[in-house]
Amino acid sequence: MMEKLRLATLWFDGCSGCHMSLLDTDERLLELTAFLDIVYSPLVDVKEFPDKVDITCVEGAISSPEDERMLVRVRNSSRLLVALGDCAVTGNIPAMRNIEGAPAMLRSIYTSGNGLQPQIPALDLPALNDKALPLHRFVPVDLFIPGCPPGADTLFTALTALIHGNTGHIALPTCFGA
């Protein structure tokens, strides 16, 4: 039996919907795990991103310097990088803040309401980049899977293709917003 491919999944600035879609493959997950080892994921309990990964699926846009550092680290350790879902592909909903930039977004969230002491929490918030951007603005991406979220079938088709070494153009039944 061939050696299993090492799969990692990450979750940056997104809603985790794409990970839910992955879980929605239901019993087909077992088919996938016949070929894949999940070596890092919000779904498993590994703290450090491993050095050698075959396929890394990234959900979410890149929104902070921390996201950016992690993405570069992940790219360097992964053979194939997959942008999973619209946030990773286009920026999607997190990118709606790009119109005004991060500071304006924080102001409108924390200070425009009727709170007792409206203020932007200084200590507990991670530093934000001005814009939330898709992965390919930072690193090369090998496969884009648009959709919000891409359906379970789409993810299954894509992963199956990757497992079978198909890294060329993969026709997927999905689109922006699907």
């Binding site: 942008a83 619209d86 592909v89 286009t90 999607n92 909903i93 990118a95 709606m96 898709p134 390919h136 991406v141 884009f144 899977i145 648009p146 919000c148 153009h169 026709a171 997927l172 999905t174 689109c175 922006f176 917003g177 699907a178």
Partner: peptide, 24 residues
Amino acid sequence: VCAVCVVNGHCELQTLAQQLGIDH
């Protein structure tokens, strides 16, 4: 932002993007 658009699923721009194989 297709995901929150009123015509998501029946938009000419979105459909053309898909037909032409635009994935990003």
